[in-house]
Design a protein around this nucleic acid. Structure first.
Lengths: 218, 218
DNA sequence: AATAGAAGTGAGTAATCACTTTTTTTGAAG
DNA sequence: CTTCAAAAAAAGTGATTACTCACTTCTATT
């Protein structure tokens, strides 16, 4: 149905520790595909094998357990999803590259939306399986809490100090901003899923950004 | 662990067609419990039976398949609980009981939060299983789209006509409002789950309402 | 008290599960 | 061509799955 490899898979093939054979890649792709479609628990290793065009035993040569498959997929996903918050944009922000919170929001929203759109299946697996796998939750917390969160809070405080952001508790600002952007991204994905009629991509993005900026103005 | 019956279950026991025996109720309660905890696919009928204190065969006397069990839980939840609940304040609104969008929001948010908190497990099951069961999706669409959505939009239009709400497309206003409230509810649930330290319930609610009102002002 | 039907039981079923062990294929060095 | 180890495929393994069935127990009406 959909045979294009999503960017995250390409990266996993090259970037990961050690090389991956073609069959390993097919196994991972088939697993991610099935997990997104039917969920982890309802996807059998035999079906993964047959979809990958591989014998079932081959899966267990490379991945000790079925859960290993999930973790191989999900672990880099969490990092890739959050990575940009650790990198370029933030130094730019701290060096006053963005004039107002609104500009910063626009940059972040478009950046993350693009990533998520390009890696829809991966994102779906992550969202669906996170509630059931404590290892994944811990992994998410461990990268989010010490690495991402302080950066985000310091950016918020900077805009507050400059007087371009309401003097609410930074965590509250973060929650309000995040829910606005997540709402946009979810609507985008749902609209894309059922090739919706009334969804004007750029207009909705602009409305969302403007709404956030106005709601969080000092 | 948690033996209190949630309100939705009580309603199912009495309101449904035909009476339910005590064991049927225990089966439903155990199933909802397990589904919320481990997900539908990972919950075995044998475990449901043992948690309900019932022989496994008893389950299948009343519910033809395991999926029947899920639908028995989820279908009335959508029809009898979700839809009326979403519509609760609407008559008040159309009779000008609320002066401004802000007041309306406050009423919606507080009692919606209460409802969801009281029926946490039901909501968890619904949210988690919706992506995998087309019957449920269809059910939700058929109930919510024609019943709830027009009402919501007409309320939004009314406030827009009165000049107390930004003249954005009503669906956009709905999305922005919903994501703000959902963000608050999710934060509330997460905070409740890990009895969080820095979560000031009323302050967060007020901040959220004020944020929405300000962001959506004309 | 007798009877009928609904409710409940638990051993049993074939199928499927994640995973293991054995056999075959492959591909490059000698 | 032979050799041989790694990789893949094939053929298992016991455990668990959703579900059935012959049967017993409860309950309500006469």
């Amino acid at each position: 149905m959909n045979d294009e490899r999503e960017p995250w898979l390409e990266e996993l093939l090259q970037g990961g520790e050690g090389k991956m054979t073609d069959k390993q890649a097919r196994i991972i792709a088939a697993a991610a595909d099935l997990f997104a479609e039917k969920g982890y628990a309802s996807s059998s290793t035999s079906e993964i094998a047959s979809r990958a065009g591989v014998a079932e035993g081959t899966i267990f040569r490379h991945y000790k357990t079925k859960k290993d498959l999930l973790l191989t997929i999900a672990k880099p996903a969490i990092i890739k999803l959050l990575a940009p918050f650790l990198l370029r944009e933030f130094k730019d922000v701290l060096h006053a590259r963005y004039g107002a919170y609104e500009e910063f929001l626009r940059a972040m929203a478009t950046n993350r939306l693009q990533f998520i759109s390009q890696n829809k299946r991966l994102f779906k697996v992550l969202l669906q399986e996170l509630p059931f796998h404590p290892e994944l939750q811990q992994q998410a917390r461990e990268t989010l809490m010490p690495l991402v969160l302080p950066q985000l809070l310091s950016v918020i405080r900077k805009f507050q100090d400059e007087g371009s952001l309401a003097p609410l508790p930074p965590l509250t600002v973060l929650r309000l901003t995040a829910s606005g952007i997540m709402g946009y991204i979810l609507a985008h994905l749902v609209a894309a899923d059922q090739n919706a009629d009334g969804w004007d991509e750029t207009a909705e993005l602009e409305a969302t950004i403007a709404f956030l900026a106005k709601g969080l103005a000092p």
